[in-house]
């Protein structure tokens, strides 16, 4: 559905997007994750033909963003950052304008508008001017406008910034729902957001894609390390050397040792089955195992490693 090859965009001396390539198949919800200024917005602007790339190519639904911008835009619903709206227009008036400028035939307009209003639960506000709405409702108006022409692709730039926690949950649910039928790209710098909404994540930093995969894959792949917390009812003096001697265990951090014959450690290993190894070790030595907990690195840790690691 979306194909991007070697996209580069500079603003004067700063490189906003630096040779990005990726593909997004139909029906996938993809999150652009990255710190502010990483190039997320610029990439989206290129995809929506607001800005051209300096080099590289991007195709949306088979149309090139540079040579056929109007065809591309027909197939995209775009919500720019901070969801700008025409405050002086009424909700229905605005949606009517959007339907009109998108060339939806008059006979279909009313139905499309009603459907968009229903999907974004704007019903109770319908008689208000957009300027009178709260931030959350404005965001929904923006979202409703992107849905009017039933686009194949939705591009949402930070769709939840400035919303309160309840509104964030609602918007995320809405995005999930929309994502069942459509290809969605959304950008964010809020980590739980991608975990909650996206099938796949592209982590972007300084104009480059530094990682991509499902949220689970990314967390697992983070340096391939597994952290495991174990507790034994046994003498620390016996346990510790045995753990150190065990193959595959890299680091042992005593958490709590010696009180009433128990001890706890945090061990990290490159082996995915470290927990099993610890179990066998305990059984072999006749220790009682009273805690065994494998921790994955959270997406947050992955993100920090990838975006700050090289500094």
């Amino acid at each position: 559905m979306i194909e991007v090859q070697n996209l580069t965009k500079t603003y004067g001396p700063t490189i906003a997007v630096d040779g990005i390539s990726f593909q997004i198949p139909k029906g996938e919800v993809v999150g652009f994750l990255g710190p502010n200024g990483a190039g997320k917005t610029t990439t989206m602007r290129i995809l929506t033909c607001y800005l051209p790339a300096d080099s590289g190519a991007a195709q949306v639904a088979g149309y090139d963003t540079f040579t056929e911008p109007v065809e591309v835009r027909r197939r995209i619903g775009y919500l720019p950052e901070s969801a700008p709206v025409y405050a002086e227009l009424g909700i229905v008036e605005y949606l009517q304008f959007v339907a009109e400028i998108r060339g939806i035939p008059k006979s279909e307009r009313e139905g499309r508008i009603a459907k968009a209003i229903e999907r974004t639960a704007l019903g109770p506000m319908i008689h208000k001017d957009i300027g009178q709405l709260s931030k959350g409702y404005r965001q929904r108006v923006g979202l409703a406008a992107t849905l009017i022409h039933d686009p194949e692709v939705l591009v949402l730039d930070e769709p939840t910034t400035g919303l309160d926690p309840n509104q964030i949950i609602e918007i995320r649910q809405l995005i999930r729902e929309i994502g069942r039928e459509k290809t969605v790209i959304l950008s964010t710098h809020i980590l739980p957001e991608v975990e909650a909404t996206c099938d796949r994540v592209l982590i972007i930093n300084q104009g480059k894609i530094v990682a991509s995969g499902t949220p689970a894959e990314l967390t697992r792949a983070a340096e391939g390390k597994v952290v495991c917390r174990v507790g034994f009812r046994a003498e620390p003096a016996m346990v510790e050397p045995a753990l150190r001697a065990a193959p595959g265990i890299e680091e042992i951090l005593p958490l709590d040792t010696g009180t009433n014959g128990t001890c706890r450690y945090e061990i990290s290993s490159k082996e995915q089955d470290v927990a099993e190894r610890v179990f066998h070790l305990a059984v072999g030595n006749g220790w009682v195992l009273n805690e065994l907990h494998t921790e994955r690195l959270s997406l947050e840790q992955v993100f920090t490693q990838l975006t700050l690691g090289d500094k």
Partner: peptide, 14 residues
């Protein structure tokens, strides 16, 4: 100023 230009100019219009 409000950023609505970005909406307007990403409609399928020239």
């Amino acid at each position: 100023k409000l950023g609505t230009a970005e909406i307007l100019l990403t409609f399928p219009v020239r």
